[in-house]
Design a protein around this nucleic acid. Structure first.
Length: 577
DNA sequence: GCCGTTTTCGGCCCGACTGTTTTCAGTCG
């Protein structure tokens, strides 16, 4: 997604929050929210667009288009600036705490003068909230729990998508600097961890100075934290730290290996080096006695001299990858190019942003062999789905399918798993879909026993082929369900239900560790984007990264299979109805 | 603030849950 769209989305969302906090008209706040989302998910770059072009985006009218133009020209919006003066930034921060919304945030600010999460935590500890109308003991507990979640999952870390966008911009800029032999990001980003603390960027070049200067001069760089001969650290406007290291070209492989980590993986590789009379550092693999370098230019050489094949970065977590490699049992990991189609996506018939035709065209452009459209079923009442509407969509999709050579369209739905495990369409209606995803969207607080029964029952429905975002966690917002997932994984294996690896950067659900656990039950997986706009289809890379961290092969993942094999999987068990 | 085979006003995605209340406001999906 382009940078301007993201910036505009952020500033409009901020304005929506400020309107809501200041007690403005609710529909006005929602109009800004809607426009923010629409621009964020709009496929074309809004930079350089005029009022007329902007107004063609659904949800953007005269007033918002004018504000966006003002922002694109000057980097600021007068009305937003005025709203910022009224409401301290810290008050807006409060609504990031789960269970706190704009109304409560304003009460806390007006009655107690609270304008930061730290002050809020302190006020709860001092029991100052209890006397406020609408606040009680449970509210205090929920707020403390919410702050804890925010800090634990956040902890200064950002979502992988945020870090990836930034890292790719930086790498592209540094590749353009004269004398650049190689440039890449390393660290936890290269290992595809779900959240990223800081970005490590490496350059191979003879002279370091020009790259250090180039990084410091990037428009995203807010401040230079450290500026040395070998390493420069900056903080971006989004508060993300970037460490740049420039290596001599002959040390590239050793440096990349060292700075990719993880620390635990490196300790293990260094130990192997020692046993072979070698010493491994960021400058190279060398003979412990003579100091002569024996390998350093590529990672393959470094691993090779340690008696190992090259190990893909997502596996470098010291989870037994080296021992497995030595036994010749390291999996051949699924890769993004193995993915033949997406099996969980939405359109504007429910809460997606783009029409069916646009989503299908964007999927075709990605070279997919098949593509499933899975809009929400009626239980998510806000989507107002009906049998008539989804059947009309099916007719449109079938007609579209006839026009698309090379890509087959599948008609599906994302069902809601009710509190008792029931689904929101009867079995005979479900039989008409090519693929049914079923997911939990509410009632997260049931007992572990009830949650487990509920999910297992949904998997036992013969029409359910994919369990969508199985734990329903949202990174930094909500923990996963407290269900017995070993029982769920066993049920999926028994019923032929694939577990989703949802690729949305806020979800990544299942996560790497759950995938490792589930795989032992012999379950299949589906790596899906859960796209709500054409710009979300590429999120798939994060799902693939997560799957790699979970040691999945292409064969484990049903949407790497040819369509005939996938269809057999989707049809299996339907006789049990 | 946006939108319109309801077109310049009057609707706007709706329902459930929670914790606080004693009839409902706030939050969430």
């Amino acid at each position: 997604m382009s940078r301007a769209n993201e910036e505009v989305e952020a500033v409009l969302q901020e304005y929506a929050d400020l309107i809501a906090i200041s007690g403005g008209e609710g529909f006005r706040a929602r109009a800004y929210e809607k426009a923010a989302r629409a621009i964020g998910g709009h496929p074309a770059d809004v930079a350089g667009m005029g009022v007329d072009g902007l107004r063609e985006i659904p949800g953007v009218g005269r007033s918002i288009a004018a504000k966006v133009v003002e922002y694109l020209r000057s980097g600021r919006i007068g009305e937003v600036e005025r709203a910022r003066e009224e409401i301290p930034a810290g008050v807006r921060e409060l609504i990031a705490v789960p269970t706190l919304g704009p109304r409560k945030a304003m009460v806390l600010h007006e009655e107690l003068g609270i304008s930061s999460v730290d002050q809020l935590a302190e006020a709860v500890r001092a029991e100052r909230l209890r006397d406020l109308k609408g606040f009680g003991e449970r509210t205090e507990e929920n707020i403390l729990h919410g702050i804890d979640l925010l800090r634990r999952a956040g902890g200064g870390r950002v979502l992988i998508s945020t870090a990836m966008d930034e890292a790719e911009r930086i790498v592209a800029a540094l590749l353009a600097v004269g004398g650049c032999v190689r440039c890449a990001y390393a660290g936890s980003l290269r290992r595809m961890r779900e959240t990223i603390g800081d970005i490590d960027v490496l350059v191979a070049a003879e002279r370091a100075g020009p790259f250090m200067d180039a990084l410091a001069a990037l428009p995203d760089t807010a401040e230079v934290i450290a500026h040395g001969g070998k390493k420069t650290s900056v903080r971006t406007r989004e508060g993300l730290q970037v460490d740049l290291r420039v290596l001599p070209p002959e040390s590239w492989g050793a440096g990349l290996q060292y700075f990719t980590g993880s620390k635990a993986h490196n300790i293990r590789t260094r130990r192997i080096a020692v046993r072979r009379g070698l010493k491994l550092s960021e400058y190279g693999l060398s003979d412990a006695e003579t100091g002569r370098t024996v390998a350093s230019e590529t990672e393959e050489e470094v691993y090779g001299r340690l008696g190992l094949p090259w190990i893909p970065p997502p596996l470098r977590e010291d989870r037994g990858e080296i021992a497995a490699e030595l036994r010749g049992e390291l999996p051949e990991l699924v890769e993004e190019r193995d993915i033949r189609g997406d099996l969980h996506t939405h359109t504007d018939l429910t809460d997606g942003l783009a029409p069916l035709e646009d989503m299908v065209a964007a999927a075709a452009a990605r070279g997919y062999a098949y593509y499933a459209v899975t809009d929400h079923a009626p239980d998510l009442a806000m989507q107002r789905m009906t049998a008539e509407k989804i059947l009309a969509q099916r007719a449109r999709l079938r007609a579209l399918d006839r026009r698309h050579r090379g890509m087959r369209l599948l008609h599906g739905t994302e069902l809601n798993i009710g509190p008792d495990g029931g689904l929101d369409w009867p079995d005979d209606f479900l039989a008409g879909f090519d693929v049914c995803v079923a997911s939990v969207h509410s009632r997260f607080d049931q007992s572990p026993e009830a949650l487990t029964r509920r999910i297992v029952r949904a998997c036992e429905n013969p029409h359910v082929k994919i369990l969508g975002h199985p734990t329903t966690r949202r990174i930094g917002r909500r923990p996963g369900l407290d269900a017995d997932f070993d029982a769920v994984f066993a049920a999926c294996a028994r019923t032929g239900t694939a577990l989703e690896v949802n690729s949305h950067p806020e979800r990544l659900d299942l996560c790497d560790e759950d995938i490792l656990r589930a795989k032992r039950y012999g379950v299949r997986f589906a790596i899906d984007s859960d796209a709500h706009s054409t710009t979300h289809l590429p999120y798939l890379r994060y799902g693939v990264g997560t799957a790699q961290r979970g040691w999945l092969t292409a064969d484990d993942v049903i949407n790497t299979w040819p369509l005939t094999r996938l269809r057999r999987f989707l049809a299996k068990g339907r006789g049990r109805a």
